[in-house]
Amino acid sequence: MRASQGLGPHPTLERKGKDILTEMLIKERRLGNGWRKKEKVQKLVFILIGLIPAFGGYVLFTLYPNLLSVYYSLLDWNGINAKRFVGLQNFIYMFQDTYVWRALWHNLIYMITIPPLVILISLLLAYLLTSKNYKGNSIFKVIFFFPNVLSTVAISLLWAFIYDGTFGLLNAGLKIIGVDIGNFYWLGEKSTAIWATIPPSVWGMVGFYFVIFMNAMTTIPKSLYEAATLEGANHMNKLFQITIPLIMPIIRVAALFLMLGVFKGFENIMILTNGGPSGSTDVIGLYMFNIAFGGGSQSYGYASAIGMLLFVVMVGAKLIIDKFTANRSAEF
C-alpha cells in the first residue's frame, strides 16, 4: 500500500484528452445535443449540492477560525468587553510569563519520556508476537490494541482509580509484595504527579504502534532470521540487528508523530490532575485552555497568542516530518 496514494494526481482523472474526446463523440451521437446540455446542468447541480455543506462547513468551522486566531492574538479581549487592539503585547507578555516556560518544560519532559517508552514497548511486543508462534497470538493482538479504542476520559478515570491513595490498585498491589507506603496519593504529590501521568498515556498508545510495527515486521522475509539463527544469533541480536534497522523509517515517523501528539495533547492531564498539584503537571495546551475556558477571568487574546505559539511549533515540526518521510513514504 503506497502512502502517496490519494495525495497525488489521480490516474483515472489524468486520462488523455483523446480518450475523453472519443467518449464525448460517442455520447453526442447517442444522446444528441439537448441531452448533453441537460447532463452538464445536472452535473453542476450535483457538485454544488455535494460540496457546499461539507466544504462550506470546512471553510467556516476550520479555515476561518484558524485565520481569526491570528487576529485575536493581537487583541486584549475577554469575549464580552469591546475588543482592544494591543499589537504584539500578548506575545511580549507570553515570553515573560514563567507559567508558559514551566508548562513548556513539562511538555519537554513528556516528549522525551512517552515516545521512547511507547516505541520500545510496542517494538518488543510486536517482535515477540511475529517471531514466535504463541498459542493465541491473535488474541494477544486483539487485547493489546484494545486501549486504543477507549476514550481519554475512560483511560484517565481508570488510572485515577489505580493511583488513588486510599483505595487505589497500585498501593494495594504494592502492599501485597511487601511495600507499604501508606496512603500515598501519586497524583496529589508534587514530586510524583508528573511521573504518574506518563504511564496512562503510554498504556493508551502502545496498542496502535504495536499493530503498525507488527504489520511492518511481517513484511521482513523469514529467511533473514533463519540465516541469523544458523549463525547463532539470539533474539536480542535479531531484534537490534535485523528487525529494527529494517523498519527504521517507520520507527522514525512513529517517533515524530508521537512527539507531536504529546506536545499538543492535554485532555488526559486535564482529567487526571488539571495541571495540579500547584501547576506541577501543567502543559502548554492545558494552560491555554484554562486561560480561555477555565474558571475565573477569561482572556481570549492571550489564549490565542499561546495558540499561535503552538501553531508555529506544530507546523514547523510537520514540515520537518514531511521532509523526513518524503524519501521513503513509509510503506507499511
Binding site: 484558524n66 490565542s304 495558540g307 506544530m314
Partner: peptide, 12 residues
C-alpha cells in the same frame, strides 16, 4: 493543529 483555533471557533 486545530488547538489554536479553539477560541475563535467558540466565539463563532
Amino acid at each position: 493543529p486545530g488547538i489554536n483555533a479553539l477560541v475563535p471557533q467558540y466565539i463563532l
